[in-house]
Design a protein around this nucleic acid. Structure first.
Lengths: 148, 148
DNA sequence: TATTGTTATACTCTATAACTATA
DNA sequence: TATAGTTATAGAGTATAACAATA
């Protein structure tokens, strides 16, 4: 199947293919835990931001409140995360439970292994470059971004 | 929201964030055409591989026959693509119709503009490097890959 | 008025399983 | 037996719209 210059020249296309490759492998690495890479990310964020609320979690994951709700339900049903009373009566404080911490360690080990395998053809130097370049993707910051 | 070393060190995480950013912008750029970036990719593949069958298209997009079927249905319903008799009686030959070619040109212009905007903070040299590094992601080729 | 959580509902994308026709 | 297309069905992930409680 020929893939002409139109596709190859689009950075977005290359990023999408790379993401599919990496995500598929990470998902397979997590299969034993029955959690997706995105849900593992949520566990990491809750661990590193104990007491955060669902809306903030959703913002960090780029999903809305309603989607964050479903995600937290799943993590809570599995006994990995707990909703505690938050800073006011509207808000939950999300906390990683001991079982969540335990499983997260195992998941991280599996995903790190996957990540290492999928990047093994790049040198340490090249990986550093790749990370730096990926971070700089996105629209240029404009003065308006400073507003209010 | 703090994002600790565990996330930042995973290349897969960075690629996922970059993909979300790029894909969201490309999707917005295509909104007027009511087609996703993936469907535009399908149009490009059909244009560049006239007469290809649905299974091959699906393989190129990393989706299965059934999903490719649905995708082609949508493109055909919109009058962008046509199923012609293929190389044997089981197979379709997919062809881009004139209306598909016309719309694809407009879509490509919009997506190229999106791509340029999302990569504007990288120099031409850096873009070249990024493309080259992204292509090298994936498991190392093994001798078994040569088998049959 | 604005925000948080919540629920109901729907849409997109993909997959599996089974069937038909053809090879 | 194997392959291409097709269909029905289901699941994951996300979104919108509305509501209650609280700020």
């Amino acid at each position: 199947m020929k893939q002409g210059a139109d596709l190859q020249s689009l950075v977005g296309y290359r990023v999408q293919r790379a993401n599919l490759l990496m995500e598929t492998d990470a998902r397979a690495a997590l299969a034993a835990h029955d959690l997706s890479p995105a849900k593992m990310t949520a566990l990491i964020l809750i661990r590193d931001n104990p007491g955060c609320d669902q809306t903030a979690l959703g913002r960090a994951l780029s999903i809305n409140r309603s989607s964050a709700m479903k995600l937290v339900n799943i993590l809570a049903d599995k006994g990995l995360v707990e909703r505690r009373p938050g800073r006011d009566l509207r808000t939950n404080a999300l906390m990683l439970l001991p079982e969540g911490a335990r499983q997260l360690e195992a998941m991280l080990a599996a995903v790190r292994q996957s990540d290492a395998r999928m990047t093994q053809r790049l040198s340490a130097e090249e990986l550093k470059t790749l990370r730096a370049l990926l971070i700089r993707l996105g629209p240029a910051p404009t003065p308006e971004d400073d507003e209010d």
